[in-house]
Simulated assay, not measured.
Amino acid sequence: MSLPETTEKATFAAGCFWGVEHFFRKHFTGKGLLDARVGYIGGDTAHPTYRSVCTGKTGHAEALQILYNPSEVTYEKLLEFFFQMHDPTTVDRQGPDVGSQYRSAIFFHNDQQEKSARRILEKAQVQWYKVDLATQVIPAGEWYDAEDYHQLYLDNNPGGYECPSHYVRNFPPLT
């Protein structure tokens, strides 16, 4: 795949990565999303597997890494959608999925992403949720792609598991 020179990367953890990938692809395909991969980030185990991450002992989160065209969709719009499509109020949990691998986190790739993430988190906290959010804003470390069968999982398994916390909340635009 040939990517534009302006391609940027965004990395989010919002619970079970199958639903996160499915929602972002559904919402942003043809609107700036160039590619998306599910995988693991934020831990201290090299080359983790799904089985090892599910133990909660690797420190990794199930996450989505997006390649996007910033002239078609801004990082801020991706952040707003991130806060709309999962429950950022719970620590290490999305619905019935419990453990640090299901935490809410924004893994930033540069200073501007960190500033934007903190600004949008604050706005979402004050304007939408009105409680302290559990979302972590942390530097992106080493990324590990999940096994091939996890990529496009819900497209390939239409009846597959979807976390009940993953749905798009109807909030007014952030100001």
Rank of each mutant, 00 (worst) to 15 (best):
M1W: 04
M1C: 11
M1P: 11
M1F: 09
M1S: 15
S2E: 15
E5H: 11
T6D: 09
T6S: 15
T7G: 13
T7C: 09
T7P: 06
E8G: 02
K9H: 11
A10E: 00
A10T: 01
T11R: 03
F12W: 10
A14E: 06
F17E: 05
V20C: 07
E21C: 11
R25V: 06
G30R: 08
G32Y: 02
L34Y: 02
D35K: 12
A36C: 15
A36K: 05
Y40F: 15
I41A: 13
I41S: 08
G42E: 14
G42W: 06
G43F: 06
A46I: 08
A46T: 09
A46R: 14
T49Q: 05
S52R: 13
G56D: 06
G56M: 08
A61R: 12
A61L: 11
A61F: 15
A61W: 09
E62R: 08
A63Y: 10
L64E: 09
Q65I: 05
Q65W: 05
L67G: 01
N69A: 13
N69H: 10
E72L: 13
V73K: 00
T74P: 04
E76L: 01
L79D: 01
F81G: 00
M85T: 08
M85E: 08
H86S: 14
T89F: 01
T90C: 06
D92H: 15
D92I: 03
Q94F: 06
S100E: 13
Q101K: 09
Y102L: 09
Y102V: 09
S104G: 10
A105W: 01
H109M: 10
H109L: 07
D111P: 06
Q112N: 12
Q112L: 09
Q113S: 06
Q113T: 00
E114F: 02
E114R: 14
K115F: 02
S116Q: 11
S116R: 08
R119G: 00
K123N: 01
Q125M: 04
Q125G: 05
Y129F: 08
D132Y: 00
A134V: 04
V137C: 10
A140F: 08
W143A: 02
Y144F: 11
Y144V: 08
D145G: 09
A146D: 07
D148A: 13
L152Q: 10
D155I: 06
D155H: 14
N156W: 02
G159E: 12
G159Y: 03
Y161D: 10
E162C: 15
E162K: 15
C163N: 13
S165M: 03
H166L: 14
H166G: 10
Y167G: 12
Y167W: 10
R169I: 02
N170F: 03
N170V: 13
F171Q: 03
F171Y: 04
P173R: 07
T175A: 14
